[in-house]
Nucleic acid binder design. Sequence first.
DNA 1: GGGCGGCCATACCCCACGGGTATAGCGTGG
DNA 2: CCACGCTATACCCGTGGGGTATGGCCGCCC
Lengths: 279, 279
Amino acid sequence: METRELRYFVAVAEELSFVRAAARLGIAQPPLSRAISQLERRLGVTLLERSSRGAALTGAGSVLLREARAALDAVEAAERRTKRAAIDQAGLVLVTKAGASTELLAKLLDAYDAEPDAVPLEVLLCGIGEQEPMLRDGRADVALLHLPFDSTAGFDIEELGTERQVVLLPAGHPLTTRTHLRVDEVHDLTGLPLPRWPRRDGSYPDGPGPQVRDNMQLLQLVSLGRACMIVPESVRGHLPEGVAAVPVLDAAPVTTVIAWPPHSRSRALAALVRTATRL
Amino acid sequence: METRELRYFVAVAEELSFVRAAARLGIAQPPLSRAISQLERRLGVTLLERSSRGAALTGAGSVLLREARAALDAVEAAERRTKRAAIDQAGLVLVTKAGASTELLAKLLDAYDAEPDAVPLEVLLCGIGEQEPMLRDGRADVALLHLPFDSTAGFDIEELGTERQVVLLPAGHPLTTRTHLRVDEVHDLTGLPLPRWPRRDGSYPDGPGPQVRDNMQLLQLVSLGRACMIVPESVRGHLPEGVAAVPVLDAAPVTTVIAWPPHSRSRALAALVRTATRL
DNA sequence: GGGCGGCCATACCCCACGGGTATAGCGTGG
DNA sequence: CCACGCTATACCCGTGGGGTATGGCCGCCC
């Protein structure tokens, strides 16, 4: 199988339409139909059920969609990492969620700068759930992830620390006088729904609660009395006016891990991980 | 980058010769030279230093070799898993080292057969270090690995158990009267060297000790008084005549894990893992 | 030191295949 | 029942991947 075939199939499988997929790929529809037919014939497998109103994935097609995405990520990573390896002063790219583990990140950057074989370290702050694909397709070399929110599937990891969670409430809310809360008490807060975060495709789940895209929005909504949110304890250091935090004793503790693609052989990465685990 | 280009590059990088690589690929040498040149030009990176006596990898070339192997494994896995998904009665393929964890494996097979959503389970016994590539390129769905010998890099795992290690000695050897030994005592056994196992490419490391390829050879050599070997405790149940086992207290304990490729969505696999962890 | 052999690059040719246009077949909905 | 939208088929063209022949370069051996 050639990567071109995989790209074509992924386009069709995602669009569920040969016409739209062809447009997205910048080619005409007939060659695309032919390419997919050839792929099916070579594999000896039916990947799509065609109808006069589009296409639907078969079971094998769903498998190939998942596997093809992974394979294309690997190819893309190969290209990116090779290009970067050719640059003399190539540093490391560290990616983490904006606003998370700021304390830890600052300490890590400081400590790493003091290391003997440190290289330039580029810090990339991204949104929810974007770190994993970046690590997988080579846009980043290393990430700070937060269990149980992020998946570490397929990466090497080291745990850096665990913290309890707190609920962010508007200052002056009755519950801010409490020394601690339970999860079910937080869910029962009428008038203070949990916000809705975007899914990977950018759409929002249904339900009550305001739609938020980043931590600034979240903090503002909390201070306005429109939402509450359970977050790791470490954000307490950077709370704006109008937002209070109360520990939630039975919320799942959050573990911060440093993650990198398996089989890495970079000295610089090893030094960074070593530094992180010694913090 | 197309997989054809990656296959070509891997061949050249492994052979360090355009002529031999072309022969291996079944094409003529000039098209291969051209393909690699095109790849380098498109990447804007020099991958190989040519000389009149062959080729040598640059730094970027080594990176691409590693990454290309991973990417090709992913593509191959995509193809294999898609084909298997199209077969109705596709079962699971479990791979483990021949002669290891026999006890555990037997229990697992029994227990899994009793599961409600069990599927046909094919057991593949392979040699040292072959499980990881098989899992990575889709020849197997799940593996029993043994830490710290096998690498679990890039896989999802669950621990199944830990056991101490014993040293296998010829029956009648003076040390067989001891109730336990230390690692340094085993290494000092003159006349009973540790055997040499093949590396991934099939060659053997230098040093004393007989060359062995599998457990049968090993046991025979031990019973002949030509070698000793530190192995997990569970092999004690299947020792032939002429081989004795003595616990080695400070040898690293061996952890058996069940491992599978990340992002699996198979019910059957989930059931197998669940069964294994409940043993 | 010169001829020789092995290796990679260049030059040139050919055809297979990827891509384009035109159009047919077909199911659906107004 | 027709019109629309989707996929499949037919046919053409050009690129580029593969082949052979050959040249240049370097180390080796006589």
